[in-house]
Design a protein around this nucleic acid. Sequence first.
RNA 1: GCCCUCGUGGUGAAAUUGGUAGACACAAAGGACUUAAAAUCCUUGCCGCUUGCGGAGUGCCAGUUCGAGUCUGGCCGAGGGCACCA
Length: 852
Amino acid sequence: MERYNFKIVEKKWQEFWDQNQTFKSKIKKDKKKFYCLEMFPYPSGNIHMGHVRNYTIGDVLARYKIMKNFNVLHPMGWDSFGMPAENAAKQNNLDPKSWTEKNISNMKKQLKKLGLSIDWNKEISTCSSDYYKHQQKLFLEFYDKGLVYRKENYVNWDPVDQTVLANEQVIDGKGWRSGAQVERKKLNQWFFNISKFSEDLLRSLDNLELWPNKVKVMQKNWIGKSFGCEINFKIKDNQNINEIKCYTTRPDTLYGMSFLAVSVDHPLSKLYENDVQFLKFKEECSKTGTTEEAIAQADKLGFKTNLNAINPLDETSSVPVYFANFVLMDYGFGAVFGCPAHDQRDLDFALKYNLPVKTVVRPIDKDVNFKVKNKAYTENGILINSQKLDGLKVPDESIPKTIKILEENKFGNKKINFRLKDWGISRQRYWGCPIPIAYDENNQILKIPEKQLPVKLPDGVDLNVQGNPLDHQDKWKNIEIDGKKCVRETDTLDTFVDSSWYFLRFCSSDNSKVPFNDEEIKYWMPVDQYIGGVEHAILHLLYSRFFIKAISYKNNNFNIQEPFDGLFTQGMVCHETYKDQKGNWLHPDEVTSDDGKNYFKKDNLNEKVIVGPIESMSKSKKNTIEPAKIIEQYGADSVRLFILSDSPPEKDVQWSEEGMIASYKFIQKLWVLHKKIKAILNNEIEIKDKKIERTEELNKFTNQIIHKITNNLEKFNYNVIVANFHEIYNYFSKEINNFIKKDALRENYKNILFLFSPIIPHFAQECLSELNINNKIIWPEANKKYLQEDMVEVVIQINGKKRFTIQSNTDSTEKEVYDKVVKEAYFIKNYGAMDIKKTIFVRNRLMNLIIL
RNA sequence: GCCCUCGUGGUGAAAUUGGUAGACACAAAGGACUUAAAAUCCUUGCCGCUUGCGGAGUGCCAGUUCGAGUCUGGCCGAGGGCACCA
């Protein structure tokens, strides 16, 4: 028998879909729409297994929805601006544009081989001026609405390369290329006013019912809404400074205050800018790192000033003022009061500098002599040692009451604070979207006028220069606006800006005049299902949400609340790691094993290979498998089947060669089965040992499996669907000789092939065409008649333990089951003489008999 | 340090959401076919005794319940997030 030749079949159907424009999308008002979107890839050169997984998951869904008669939009594009292109270009002395374009064409070819149901007419690339010209318009629109501004901000500055570094480019405080000690430097940067929408972004998370809770929690924490108050602390006897403003969520612990701490970047630091000791301290602080984790773990350091702050609730007492490394300037007011007994950081600090620890909250079950020693008490309780506040319940009574007192005495105000900071969008790099701004001779900001748009990136730029290459493009930089000499902004936009609205662009990708057309947006948006890696849980998703809010702001034509109705975050693809005896990473192709336990180097069979942990595939660990090769070897359907089979899509999956081969073999087995069914249907073979007519059972099996697979599709249980496919194979190959009525076999098998279609589309389509079933493939609906069995197995428990099962008519009553049970030989033998105290009956499921 | 998630056979995992734990596969062992191998198919799967049956059993310890992988509390372990890499 001929083997299944995936190479011919897959090519054939891919060409067929292409030529027939099978997946071309257009607005059809009479049909329900479904916008299925996977996160678009960065064109790094080749697709990797993560892409295969991501796009297979999306494709299964898109194909299913097409079969369910939805009007599906399933587009693809390229997130093609960014640092890797610039780095690759620098290293190999070529230009980012051609590097990127070459990668795109290569990856597009590879993606097409997966047989995805993508409408390639919608393809976009963010580095094309056809795309970013619209982005510049959006930027100016935001600017007009007051959502864009410029301010000074700290950056990681590499003094040797004269360039700004991303956090990941800073390794142990040094630049990744130059190795120079990185400095903190203040630079004028552009910002999107995302914090204006903090409340909105937080509140509308609650409406995103089809988002994983994990992602919503991360976003909630990121936005970080806190309820507290601002407090003005008077400074004792000082002519330079009268007061310091602090933000706190725990004003009720004021009586426990023993110091006041401010950030080294606080305006107060101006008073100490000539103090050598202070400058040394500031230098020390800059080494701590600014992440929350670093601050929480770091040693608490302080620099004592000669200032003293007065406690507003008790003006007879005052506490010393410190500069401290754990206070950040960009949160609150860059100043906090320290209450060591009830905040761990403050306690660490107080113990180090011998400051008093005054307990002001006691647990409910402890008395007023409760004292905090080495562990701060941050739970609920009762206020103590707080004069008139004593006895208040913490926090429900204590906080509002304290705020009220502070407000009445004009020492402070209730205040809601957000952790969310504005989004810095300036990047001092070449390969990004130019910011459509210029500065006149007085350094005044000018928008690039409409007729001078778009601002295109200059070609042929020398990247091997210090700092931002665009700074060196004098011809490009110096322009005239309305006859005035101006200089262009040379910063380009963060690539997160590019990906914050591409899903809108897909709706109108052929419209060169506007970024998107209201009518098309109205029809297609929001994205019904967005699929991608959980690594984008915060930034990309939050920024995209912000864009929707910002576009809607002061715009009545745009009425969308959220960009992504449903979100699915898939897990990573992992593989074992290998190292040689010297500790160098080895690629799976470089190692071999006979028993799957002991591995050796292929080029030196005497050298044992050290098998490391299973980790997500990465180039640096060399544990990658090239999808292009694997598809060439086993075919797209096999790869799609495997990548879905082993783990639920939201969890990490381990790549295994055995698993891949098993999927390949399974498709071959399905083909053998298919050939047999085809021969039966065409009367080409005579069934020898006809046994029992099983048509009703076949109908029942098919309809039940339709029901199961449909449910599993709806719930993203794609790994279970693969198991269901195996059930189908096992059932058919066992019973095939008993299906005597050919019409019924044909009808059931047709439906089975439809079920295969979203996951192994080439195979399914080939089989259908072999049976001359060329009409539209539609998702089969299970006939309810077959979903219920006539007989069910009922579990009989004695004292909660399973003892035996009985067959019973579906929906039998408790009495019917009971009567059957007491007639069972097993029951009579073992329990017949005992008293039944109680029976618990669950219809069609079990009966539990309680015997004492 | 703070927040979140997850712990089921040798392995990846199922389990109608409180009702037969281990579907479906991978690996392994034994067997069948074969001169032999490959391929294919069948059986086994933790502990006891002879088929059959019984027992333990979903990280650990308690609890709720007729009944817990599923719910509650505590502990142990693993992973992820905590500001400009996409």
